[in-house]
Nucleic acid binder design. Structure first.
Lengths: 306, 306
DNA sequence: CATCAAGCATAAGTTCAGCTTAGGTGTTCT
DNA sequence: AGAACACCTAAGCTGAACTTATGCTTGATG
């Protein structure tokens, strides 16, 4: 019988690219991973990986085996989730990841709701970049995470992670107000090019390089026909608004960040959306603590809005 | 992560009923199985089995976990099968089980065909009662098996075993001929009760007690309205015919056993069928050696008949 | 081109999970 | 009541799997 632990290593190798990275993620030495993968190859009787430069890449046989590993591990996750459901009461710890701005919007409300309904549950919050979430989930460093998904920034589909949509909100263009008063443009009509065009020469404020928020600004501007001149890179939307207010540039903020209205900023709604989701390991949705968090997060975004 | 080897033990416990039986089947000591199941229970955090008299039975949680184990193990079987397919050439050994009468009908033709097409494959034949086949497949003592399936004897559905139908043939009633000449009644019309009625007082020849062939005779007679008086119990259909010829009783034989015609026996076709099938572990159909055997067996029964 | 770091593989030593053996308890059958 | 059966626990042992140490190849850098 194929060893599932070894299949797990093969899957991580497929995702992370190097044996060293796999070892780091699972807190082994590279030697241990190398030995186990050799053993897997031996029992498989087929070459699963071959050296390519100083790394290794999976053979076609290795890649199909990873597909099977995904299926097996998903089913094991589901089994574990159901077992957790069979244990009376929801308890233990739940490791929650969140994008930075989620930490002071959705998460507190969700955690309050969660604590009210399941006092035995011990939530552990951790800020994490959305791009690193799926790795952290697979490695078991996180159980659930709040993630973002922007227009223009397609996430590669990943069979190992499931997502539940929480909220879809429009993005706003934040520009400095001439008079110093706060204003929210209800616009909504007008194409992206028409709305962004006037800012093609302005300095831009984006999220930090490498994030999906950053990529979204760049691609939206490109779609509007220009290359943004980026001056500031900050992740915190309150900082974006403060900078815009003092005329340091223009940027995007999600609807959540528009209340209370920031002084000295004009906000214009864009035909551009951000979706907030809860992500967890495929099969893990049956876990009561995860299901409870998804429900609490849903209540947190749905409650105030209805 | 749940340990798949332990899940395998739990599944076997579900099928076999006692820890001792599981240990015997997998060549462990009962102590080892007991310890591993305790460990599984500990990591599950839920009671999976409870004592009932001097045995143990699965709790509801244990039974749902077995369902997951079935799914996981089937997928692993499929993965292993595909790996075997990726190995160039078909080789190694293939352990084949067969019901006794299959040994001198289908199997030789199938093995000849198999040897012709895949000289590297080393088939290992073993007679086995159909009722024990699924256990033997699951335990890994067999890779494929020829099994039977009679009308009136429903086999309990087993998600761990897949079957491919080979042949459906009518059963014949064998009675002693008055004149001593061979005869095959083409009857076909007439209900089961009408055809068997005349034999309600005759001594019967059936397969050995506990086999499906035996159960089929008893239930068919019951359906015809009488309880058969069983005198002889033999599995070999040639012996059945010989006994019928000397007036020692009446019995059922499948069509396969009617050629060449036996002297002194009258054969009457019954509206009663026997199906021959190839069985293998769920997911194992993708294994090249198993697929080759299924094809060869199909050719063996289909070839002479078309 | 020489040098260095990254990444993988192998050898050797160590630790711990999982096996067997041995012995004990509760249950069922005779 | 006694015997056989099925399971559990304790104790000791063995091998699989990990770490450490080392060497090889590849790619980047000055």
């Amino acid at each position: 019988m194929l060893d599932v632990r070894r299949l797990h290593l093969l899957r991580e190798l497929d995702r992370r690219g190097t044996i060293t990275a796999v070892a780091e993620a699972l807190t082994f030495t590279a030697s241990a991973v190398s030995q186990q993968l050799s053993a897997l190859e031996r029992e498989a009787g087929v070459a699963l990986l071959e050296r390519s430069g100083r790394r290794v890449v999976l053979t076609p046989a290795g890649r199909t085996l990873v597909a099977h590993a995904d299926a097996v591990l998903e089913r094991l996750e589901l089994a574990a989730a159901e077992l957790a459901g069979a244990r009376e009461g929801i308890g233990g710890s739940l490791r929650i990841g969140t994008f930075p701005s989620g930490g002071h919007t959705i998460v507190p409300a969700a955690l309050a709701e969660l604590a009210r309904r399941h006092p035995g549950l011990e939530p552990m919050l951790q800020e994490i970049d959305s791009a690193r979430v799926s790795d952290a989930l697979r490695a078991g460093d996180l159980d659930v995470a709040l993630v973002h998904d922007y227009d223009f920034v397609p996430a590669p589909p990943d069979a190992t992670v499931e997502e539940v949509s929480l909220l879809e909100e429009p993005m706003y263009l934040a520009t400095g107000a001439a008079g110093g008063a706060a204003a929210v443009g209800a616009s909504g009509d007008g194409t992206l090019a028409e709305l962004l065009g006037p800012c093609s020469e302005a300095p831009w404020i984006t999220a930090r390089d490498g994030t999906t928020g950053h990529a979204m600004v760049v691609r939206a501007c490109q779609a509007a026909g220009f290359q943004p001149r980026i001056r500031h890179q900050v992740n915190d939307f309150r900082t974006v608004l403060s900078l815009a207010a003092i005329g340091q540039g223009v940027g995007f903020v999600p609807e959540t960040a528009t209340a209370p209205p920031a002084e000295g900023v004009v906000l214009t709604a864009l035909p551009l959306f951000r979706r907030s989701k809860v992500a967890f390991r495929a099969g893990g949705g049956a876990h009561p603590a995860i299901a409870a968090f998804v429900a609490a997060a849903g209540a947190a975004v749905g409650g105030p809005r209805c």
